[in-house]
C-alpha cells in the first residue's frame, strides 16, 4: 500500500510539473512614466513568479533613466529578475547622450514594435 501511494504521489508531482510548464506567464510593461517603476517592481517581486518580466520605457521622460536616483531601481530590477529596456527612437528624438543611459538598460529600436513583437510570442502586456 505504501508503495502504491508513493507511486501515485510521484505521478501527481509529474502532472503538476507538466501543468506548470504550460502556465508560465511572461509579462511586458510599456510605460512613459519612469516613476512608475517602483510599483511595477513591487508587482514583479513575487517569489512564485516564473517566466520573463520586462519593462520598456519610452517617451519624453526617458532622460530620468540617467539620474543617480534611478540607480536603486537598477539594483532592485536585477534582484527581482526584471529586464529593463529603453526606446532608441525616444533617446534620439530627445538628443540624449547614449553614454548616460545605464548599461543595465538595453536599447530597443522602437518600443511599440518591441511590445507588439513580444505579444506575438504570447507575452501579457500592460501599457501605462
Amino acid at each position: 500500500m505504501k508503495n502504491s501511494i508513493a507511486i501515485i504521489i510521484l505521478f501527481l508531482s509529474l502532472g503538476v510539473t507538466a501543468q506548470q510548464k504550460f502556465e508560465t506567464t511572461n509579462f511586458v510593461i510599456l510605460t512613459s512614466n519612469i516613476d512608475q517603476i517602483e510599483p511595477i517592481l513591487m508587482a514583479a517581486q513575487n517569489e512564485s513568479r516564473e517566466g520573463e518580466f520586462q519593462i520598456v520605457f519610452y517617451g519624453s521622460k526617458v532622460k530620468q533613466l540617467s539620474n543617480d536616483s534611478f540607480k536603486e531601481n537598477l539594483k532592485l530590477a536585477e534582484e527581482f529578475n526584471v529586464k529593463l529596456f529603453v526606446c532608441q527612437m525616444s533617446i534620439e528624438r530627445l538628443k540624449i547622450d547614449l553614454a548616460t543611459i545605464p548599461e543595465e538598460i538595453t536599447l530597443v529600436e522602437n518600443a511599440f514594435l518591441y511590445a507588439l513583437q513580444l505579444q506575438k510570442k504570447g507575452y501579457k502586456t500592460l501599457n501605462l
Binding site: M1, S4, I5, I8, I9, F11, L12, G15, V16, A18, Q19, F22, E23
Partner: peptide, 22 residues
C-alpha cells in the same frame, strides 16, 4: 486509506486531463 487513495487518483486524472487540454 481508500478515500485518500481514490482522491489522489481522481486528482491525478483531472490534472493530466488539464495538462493534455492545454
Amino acid at each position: 486509506m481508500k478515500t485518500i487513495l481514490s482522491t489522489l487518483i481522481l486528482s491525478f486524472v483531472l490534472m493530466s486531463a488539464n495538462a493534455q487540454k492545454s
